[in-house]
Amino acid sequence: MSLLSVDNLSIGYETKNGMVKAVDGISFSLEKGRPLGFVGESGCGKTTIGMTLMGLLPDNAKILSGSVRFQTQDLVRLTEDQWRSVRGKDIAMIFQAAMNALNPVYRVDDQVREAILAHRPDISDKELNHRIRELFELVEIPYERIHDYPHEYSGGMKQRVIIAMALACQPQVIIADEPTTALDVIVQDQILEELRAIQSKLNTGLIFISHDIAVVASICEDICVMYGGQIVETGTRKEVFSSPRHPYTKTLLGSYLSLDNEEHIIIPDMRESADLTLASGCCRFQANCTACDAACKSDQPTWIDISPTHKALCCDAGIIRNPHD
């Protein structure tokens, strides 16, 4: 059984210009031991999904439809009281830019201590200290540095503390939202290595969010490519990266610079940002799609299967079934 499964989830934000549908009818499931990646440009709804799974949507957000199955519960129906026993305990999140939010006046081990005590107030001192030691070992921070203040840490070490805090209560699901975006490549590489090692050691469920496709590719077995609040393509990493089918996935991969691909770079012409006010279920990529025709503006896209695990959302099966351009 899936660890977590999301069905037809839609989330809107009330704004002064009306409702923007930041997440539009997405479904996915997270399997134990298979890290799941969400990738797409900024504003495509990645953080909104993470916040939904943590029960932390802001006041102007509204869950318009859908369910989130976790264990025996539907998370979208939880009261705030019920959330308190799930959030941070069963499901934990490494928030975007969290390392800059470590409290500067508390020592790092005390901050990890707080994270444990929040859910296990009766833990004995002995066990608490043991757990702290274990967590710092897990994220490879030397024991003699655990009493330091955050400013004495490098960016990479701060991010390790954030990871330790997320792991504090042995969650079943960890959501990592752009955990390496603020770090430079060398430190990013170390943190990714760390996450990989921890994930395979603890075998937790991992949802990994990033705008950087190569970073997602290096961590995740299963990939969801998002555009404008919709999942437009999903599959195993091999399927999505070796044989992308949706025009947006092709654009995203085609414009990604790596050390060995410059001959094949396609310069996209992405002018419009996605229109989040379109009616539910309309293709949100149509304004930027080079393959789009009139039918795409009137028809609703459907899921087109390429394999049992690989599918893409499009109005035109011909586009999706053709692996070449």
Partner: peptide, 22 residues
């Protein structure tokens, strides 16, 4: 530089560039 990095730091920098090796 990429083909024949001379300095160890450059080698390290090349090694950690994200790509699609999996």
């Amino acid at each position: 530089i990429i083909r024949n990095p001379e300095h160890p730091y450059t080698k390290k920098l090349i090694k950690v560039q994200p790509g699609f090796r999996f």
